[in-house]
């Protein structure tokens, strides 16, 4: 028979702040990944939707879009992919929000909050698990894109390192947006509300951009909005790194230095929304 009270009367000494925070976040990440793997239909829907978008946009709009001076569907196809990739990673927002809203209203949150764990670990663990899911989705999407005719280097030379950097920026953007999702999830009462609350504003953000159309063809007053949109910076950065056609010729700083702009925007979003979310988490239900 096991003795219940043997061994340490207290848990082992706490590790230092950052190491502990990281270790706890990994434990929660693992928990969320196990959960995701036990609800495979969620992963499946997460995959079907962007694949459907790629195919619809390519074959429905492909023939009627003008990129630069070209109306060649092949140009549009190569132009489109960076936009679809970027839009797909931002959709992780909704999943993170719903997951966190769900957690906050289940009994398990009391367990977490009564344990001596790092303050942000419940949220960080969720966003990191979503990052893994986003990476898988992106991989599948990239393969589909290659199959239907996306050719990195179509308009300008590229190399493996640049392509990797492009995908890294996409993942960072997705990670940043899951922190927006986290804040939404903490602010609403139900996972359903978090899902719609996490999605609706993504439509204007991803459409008023350079993702699906040539932003210089937008109405004049919308052009600066699209050019300074953080989302556009990542799309432009990917086009540049992948050697895709249709780079925005705009003078706006984020369009001129898109890799830096994308990096700065994403890091800024993480810092701001992580701070707000962790603060909200700590005060929740107290």
């Amino acid at each position: 028979m096991t003795t219940l009270t043997d061994g340490a009367r207290r848990p082992p000494a706490a590790r230092g702040g950052i190491a502990r925070s990281f270790a706890d976040s990994l434990v929660v990440t693992k928990r969320n990944l196990i959960r995701m793997s036990r609800i495979p239909e969620m992963i499946l829907f997460g995959l079907i939707q962007p694949v459907m978008f790629v195919i619809l946009f390519t074959y429905v709009f492909g023939g009627s879009m003008q990129i630069g001076n070209s109306t060649d569907p092949d140009v549009y196809k190569n132009f489109l992919m960076a936009g679809i990739f970027a839009q797909t990673v931002t959709f992780a927002t909704a999943g993170a929000g719903a997951g966190i809203a769900d957690d906050m209203h289940k009994g398990l949150i009391d367990r977490f909050r009564s344990l001596p764990m790092a303050r942000g670990a419940v949220l960080t663990g969720r966003t990191m698990a979503d990052l893994v899911q986003t990476a898988v989705t992106l991989l599948v999407l990239a393969v589909v894109a290659l199959i239907i005719g996306w050719r990195p280097g179509y308009a300008a030379p590229t190399n493996a390192g640049k392509i990797m950097l492009g995908f890294a920026l996409l993942l960072l953007l997705g990670y940043a947006f899951t922190w927006i999702g986290a804040l939404i999830g903490l602010s609403v009462r139900t996972p359903e509300a978090a899902t719609s609350g996490g999605l609706i504003w993504l439509f204007p953000v991803t459409f008023v951009s350079n993702a699906f159309v040539d932003s210089s063809k937008l109405p004049g007053w919308l052009q600066p909005v699209a050019e300074w949109n953080p989302f556009s910076a990542t799309v432009q950065a990917c086009r540049k790194l992948f050697g895709d056609p249709g780079l925005s010729p705009s003078d706006a700083w984020p369009m001129q230095y898109p890799v830096w702009a994308s990096l700065i925007y994403s890091v800024l979003i993480v810092v701001v929304f992580r701070t707000l979310s962790v603060r909200k988490y700590r005060s929740a239900s107290a």
């Binding site: 848990p11 082992p12 000494a13 706490a14 590790r15 502990r20 270790a23 706890d24 434990v27 693992k30 928990r31 367990r111 977490f112 344990l115 001596p116 764990m117 670990a121």
Partner: peptide
Amino acid sequence: MVGQLYQM
């Protein structure tokens, strides 16, 4: 999971 969150 609980054990690991107690830093075991």
